[in-house]
Design a protein around this nucleic acid. Structure first.
Length: 310
DNA sequence: ACTGGATCCTGACTGC
DNA sequence: TGCAGTCAGGATCCAG
């Protein structure tokens, strides 16, 4: 379900409610998600205060007092909601954090591709799950800035969304460095494969998943099968800009809700109506009206316009 | 050294 | 209506 915009939308929706809260108790209701859950480590979070909510790639980082960080990843089907305790548990609710206020933060994930673990905050960047990550496409975490925040629900097509740089990213490359064409060009040096899987490679740039890779390539007019060894500097520039723009717009519109993505308060996103090609096989390209085509790359669906993506 | 494919799991949807 | 088959927003591991 979630790519970078959805996780960022979730982070922003939860932040004002969670920061300052205390974790009163932790209920570990399943033995494992993708990996076994460390029950003892999770239960030991009881009593800690939530200091910050951060994001790195598609990981939501709940920074706690006492130098611990709760790391949550939604995988494909994960959802996190903040609800009153009397709300019935939905199926596949694996983790429940009871808060000092009495409300509950619940982690639900039918397919169990998600993750939840605890790390020392100071050791985050050195952890193998973070140390290999590429750069944040929007720069430092939370980087979409106030423009996207205030533009939520009101964002037109105007290009007034600005990128800010706030906070420090964890691990990987220079935190405040946003994605640019040079970065992509350098990362592609010596490689050969098609550009779409390259764009989804988290060691190159994080947060760009299957939806936004298709969308960014469409926006940049680049064919998803084009080899990374055959892309000019000017096109890398266009692609980098397209990535940033698509992600910013998606954040501003509350993320993409295909089946059931919602933010922490149960609100759906609206970016699905802005999708140009993703999940639109056979429908006309918004730019040239050629029917959108669907192909498989690395086992994933890719959507593109054969008329204007070269 | 890279790249592509299989894989983890459940649910929703399609077509017979 | 029922059932089998297909596909899904991620990330890792392994073989070639």
């Amino acid at each position: 379900m979630p790519e970078l915009p959805e996780v960022e939308v979730l982070r922003r929706s939860l932040e004002p409610h969670l920061v300052g809260e205390t974790i009163a108790a932790v209920d570990v209701r399943s033995p494992a998600l993708r990996e076994p859950l460390d029950r003892a480590a999770l239960e030991a979070l009881a009593g800690r205060r939530i200091e910050r909510l951060r994001r790195r790639a598609k990981y939501l980082l709940v920074e706690l007092s006492g130098g611990a960080t709760l790391v949550l990843h939604l995988g494909m089907s994960g959802r996190i909601v903040l609800v009153d305790p009397e709300v019935p548990h939905e199926p596949h609710t694996h983790l429940v954090f009871r808060l000092g206020s009495g409300r509950e933060l619940r982690f639900r994930d039918p397919r169990r591709f998600g993750r939840a673990f605890v790390l020392p905050t100071a050791g985050l960047a050195a952890d193998p799950r973070f140390s290999e990550l590429g750069i944040e496409p929007l720069g430092g975490e939370g980087a979409a800035g106030e423009a996207a925040e205030s533009g939520r629900r009101a964002a037109g097509t105007g290009g007034e969304l600005r990128e800010g740089t706030a906070g420090a990213a964890v691990g990987g490359a220079e935190p405040s460095q946003a994605l640019d064409g040079d970065h992509l060009r350098r990362a592609a040096r010596g490689r050969r494969g098609p550009v779409k899987p390259f764009l989804m490679d988290a060691t190159v740039v994080v947060g760009v998943g299957n939806i936004y890779a298709s969308e960014a390539l469409w926006a940049a007019g680049i064919h998803p099968n084009r080899s990374v060894s055959r892309i000019s500097a000017a096109r890398w520039d266009r692609l980098a800009a397209a990535c940033r723009e698509v992600l910013l717009r998606a954040i501003a519109e509350g993320g993409t809700t295909l089946n059931d993505f919602t933010d922490g308060e149960g609100r759906s996103g609206e970016f699905q109506v802005s999708l140009a090609v993703y999940d639109r096989e056979g429908l006309p390209c918004p730019r040239c009206a050629t029917p959108v085509r669907r192909i498989a790359q690395s086992g994933r669906s890719t959507f593109y316009c054969p008329g204007c993506q070269t």
